[in-house]
Design a protein around this nucleic acid. Structure first.
Lengths: 183, 183
DNA sequence: GTCCACATGTAACTGGTTACATGATTGG
DNA sequence: CCAATCATGTAACCAGTTACATGTGGAC
């Protein structure tokens, strides 16, 4: 039950069309709640039917024609309600940890290459986060809203930092392969 | 496509019935790949149909009657294949970070209590992990398999450590509420 | 006028969740 | 024999994924 609220948040930050939302989900909000354009269009339809958002009056609604939405008061109220409501944390699912556990039983053959690849992906993501931090949160002048958003970004940075360190540590468990290069 | 492999790993560690698996998924493997008993029974059926596992010959198969499974060579081979295969990391989804982001728009009213609750849950999980570490991985004598399993547990410990620290940091953003007590 | 990028949408499928049903075994 | 518990299973549903379909407008 989180995708509609992710969309409401994005629309409150700036009224948008479905495709614009899709693009914005590829950054920013999508870093911790990703969604494809199919999901977004489906959800926009539901939100409109529920009276939480509406198309901007100036737009003509037609297929293939751009259609922008804005949040109605009922939508903002629902988002505030959801934000404050107690929620159980979802159980984690991490395939990489599972694979390490499986490797303890069937052996580590072939695993190292993919660990290195994951390390690289996390390093790239970390670099991207740090760049966003430099760009959007220069030191010394955060508004209260910016401080919350910065906090969220810090979570992303710290998580990626953890993964890069953990993967480097994990790779030390692997015997050096002659001919494979060991960075 | 990970649940069947989680089950294969668990069954290789020890042949079990559906309910035993369910219980073991509440600890150990379930910490990073949770599953309910309905999922597990469904998946056991599929794995058996695919010839990756079989019921222990000594068991009589009947409803309400306990039925234990063991992994067949084809199952072990499939697990080894999957472990070594390259896999894309799944996009993250974290409702708590989303809520913080929403709070930047609609305000933080009511959020603090649930953050404290989450902090407590993570602290409890961290304590549990540390206890498992003391119990299962006493310093100085890890076999190669144990070192991999220990590595996985360390990931859990470090992740919970991150979350407790981050949540404490996040709570500093909230104004002190008279009458609510500030720990 | 044709092709391509933009934009919105439908349909089928998969994996996970929730609620419920049924049989076997054991303690009182 | 009855209730509680153990154990296996069915069914309906929901969220997310993948593949595909359709319409619009501008570049050439």
């Amino acid at each position: 039950m989180s995708l509609p609220h992710a969309i409401l948040t994005a629309l409150l930050e700036k009224p948008s069309s479905g495709l614009e939302l899709t693009r914005r989900f590829d950054k920013s909000i999508g870093y911790f709640w990703s969604a494809t354009h199919q999901q977004i269009y489906r959800e926009l339809g539901k939100l409109e039917a529920d009276g939480l958002i509406r198309t901007l009056p100036s737009e003509q609604p037609a297929r293939g024609q751009r259609k922008s939405y804005e949040v109605l008061p009922a939508g903002r109220a629902e988002l505030a309600r959801w934000t404050a409501a107690a929620q159980e944390p979802k159980p984690h699912r991490d395939a990489l940890l599972l694979r390490l556990r499986a490797a303890a039983v069937v052996g580590t053959a072939g695993l190292e290459a993919d660990l290195r690849r994951h390390l690289e992906l996390h390093e790239r993501q970390l670099a991207e986060y740090r760049q966003i931090e430099r760009r959007d949160f220069p030191p010394g002048r955060d508004s209260p809203e910016d401080r919350l958003r910065h906090l969220v970004l810090r979570a992303g940075i710290d998580l990626e930092t953890f993964w890069t360190q953990w993967l480097r540590h994990a790779l030390e468990e692997f015997p050096e392969q002659p001919g494979h290069g060991t960075r």
